[in-house]
């Protein structure tokens, strides 16, 4: 017991680069993620934030709740403005500064995908992190292409919930042969911090992509103290596996073997899936399960292709 506790303290730096005075909702997964990411990256970081919840969270004029500079930009430009900032820092003699694009799922999966694709393909020397709360939460919970199947949003009401599977952005990034792509959630802070550290160490190798599942209590219709809990359930039920893709899309590594708890445990705590458990909701529940199952099985196969076995996947490591 004491050994584990020691390791945890050692892995999560005490530095706080995210101050009080921010305007995130209670239990905001995106705020937790930024706090942890900056613990990993330190303060020699220039952050680019497009239109997203973080436009608000960082604080309104003249407030600024981060210990790093933030350039706010238009919705679809996070990746390219971060690349422009990186270029500017380089030509003005500040090569060591990390350029971090920090965007929501709308600004990444949808409107920002073109600029992200361009930056990824060209190998821009930036870290791109998406804090994915699975809908347009800042404008009041509208469907994005990151919304999971069957989910309620204000544009996919319970009578006609989101009909399509969530876009697999990790695969899209892998197809761009980025040097590093990883998933993370604030429910596994050491894992998230390790991944940001790794992305930082890979400076100069191209675009490093980190996909963070960021629970959103108001948007997911759950209590604010369920934020970390729900992210943990998402991992344990295989809805959101923790894994990394390295070596230009060739090497897949599952970081943690989930317990495989029933998916219902994850869904039932969220109001956005309530209709799945009412009459007529079975087909959406099935669709969701099928989506999770398929993703997981493919991922396990890819891990096997890389490592020849699944025995090397840590089980219970994070408990």
């Amino acid at each position: 017991m004491s050994e584990k506790k020691t390791r945890r303290i050692w892995d999560v730096p005490d530095d706080e680069n995210f101050y009080y005075g921010h305007t995130a909702c209670q239990g905001c997964g995106g705020a937790l993620a930024m706090r942890l990411a900056l613990k990993a990256l330190g303060t020699d970081v220039a952050v680019t934030i497009p239109a997203c919840c973080w436009t608000i969270i960082a604080g309104g004029f003249p407030g600024h709740a981060l210990k790093v500079p933030v350039f706010h930009t238009a919705f679809e430009t996070a990746a390219i403005v971060a690349a422009g900032i990186k270029g500017g820092l380089e030509v003005t003699g500040r090569k060591s500064t990390i350029s971090l694009a920090w965007a929501g799922d709308g600004g990444t999966f949808d409107i920002g995908l073109q600029a992200l694709s361009g930056a990824a393909e060209r190998g821009e020397d930036i870290i791109y992190a998406v804090y994915d709360n699975e809908a347009y939460m800042n404008t009041g919970i509208q469907r994005s292409s990151a919304t999971p199947p069957g989910a309620w949003t204000t544009t996919t009401p319970a009578k006609r919930p989101n009909p399509r599977p969530k876009k697999n952005l990790m695969e899209i990034m892998a197809a761009h042969k980025v040097p590093y792509a990883a998933t993370a959630t604030p429910a596994y802070p050491e894992d998230l911090i390790r991944k940001f550290r790794k992305a930082k160490e890979m400076a100069g190798q191209g675009l490093r992509f980190i996909h963070i599942l960021a629970p959103c209590p108001p948007g997911w219709k759950m209590a604010s103290d369920y934020s970390v809990h729900s992210a943990r359930l998402a991992v344990e039920s295989r809805v959101f596996p923790l894994y990394e893709i390295e070596d230009g899309g060739r090497k897949y590594t599952i970081n943690y073997w989930p317990k495989g708890i029933p998916i219902e445990e994850y869904l039932k705590i969220q109001g956005r899936f309530r209709h799945l458990f009412k009459p007529g909701g079975e087909k959406w529940l099935e669709a969701f399960k099928e989506f999770v199952e398929e993703n997981w099985n493919q991922l396990v196969e890819k891990h096997k292709l890389t490592h020849g076995t699944t025995d090397n996947i840590p089980r219970g490591y994070y408990k």
Binding site: F71, T77, V81, Q114
Partner: peptide
């Protein structure tokens, strides 16, 4: 990959003083 991004890249760079 687009003019929109061309201007955005200039914006990022110029914001650093380049």
């Amino acid at each position: 990959e687009s003019e929109h991004s061309a201007m955005a890249a200039c914006i990022g760079a110029s914001a650093t003083g380049a």
